[in-house]
């Protein structure tokens, strides 16, 4: 019995929109389609592949970046709605050879294995410290639960965050 699926929606004509972003301190201009996500923009147009795609549905947190200082799932963010924003990605956290304290803590506590969720975990951890929510181990676990790690490095990640949570320069 042949099955016919629903008709597709009418084809949308391509329409480009101009936006300006500051990415890791650098001014960038883009003419992009409105359906380009911030995640795909970073990865495919700026070659900032440190920001990861793990589900494209806001379910795993691998794509977490800091937008105007706040942690955001970049896969659920259309780039055009962030026109004028300041974006910080994992590539923008260290200065030269000096790692951000959170990055160093992740290495010291072996807070990753495969490394794929790591940039999102680090950006999320920094965002959480800025929110002032890292009050004790339970709070860290609860407020980091949007970032999945299939290698199961959770206890080491919590150790890493705890080790720097009081430091002003870790925010």
């Amino acid at each position: 019995m042949p099955t016919k699926l629903a008709e597709p929606t009418a084809q949308t004509a391509e329409r480009l929109i101009d936006i300006d972003l500051t990415v890791n301190g650098k001014a960038e201009h883009f003419s992009i389609a409105p359906w380009v996500t911030l995640l795909d923009l970073l990865r495919e147009r700026l070659d900032l592949t440190g920001t990861k795609k793990g589900c494209d549905h806001g379910q795993c947190g691998a794509c977490t970046v800091l937008v105007d200082g706040k942690r955001v799932n970049s896969c659920l963010t259309l780039a055009v709605v962030r026109d004028g924003s300041e974006i910080q990605t994992i590539e923008g956290l260290s200065s030269g050879d000096t790692l951000h304290p959170m990055q160093q803590a992740f290495i010291d506590h072996d807070a990753f294995q495969c490394g794929y969720c790591t940039p999102g975990q680090i950006c999320s951890a920094i965002g959480m410290l800025r929110e002032g929510k890292a009050d004790g181990r339970d709070a860290i676990r609860e407020n980091m639960s949007g970032n999945l790690c299939r290698c199961g490095a959770y206890t080491n990640i919590a150790d890493a965050i705890e080790s720097v949570q009081g430091r002003e320069d870790a925010r």
Binding site: R43, L48, T49, G50, T51, K52, K53, T89, I90, E91, L93, S94, L99, Q103, Q104, F106, I107, D108, D110, F112, G115, Y116, T118, P119, I122
Partner: peptide, 19 residues
């Protein structure tokens, strides 16, 4: 020894298949 690929993984420098 700390993971020798650690620095690349915490800075976004480690490239995976689509990158």
């Amino acid at each position: 020894l700390s993971r020798v690929d650690g620095k690349l993984k915490v800075t976004g420098g480690a490239r995976y298949a689509a990158e």
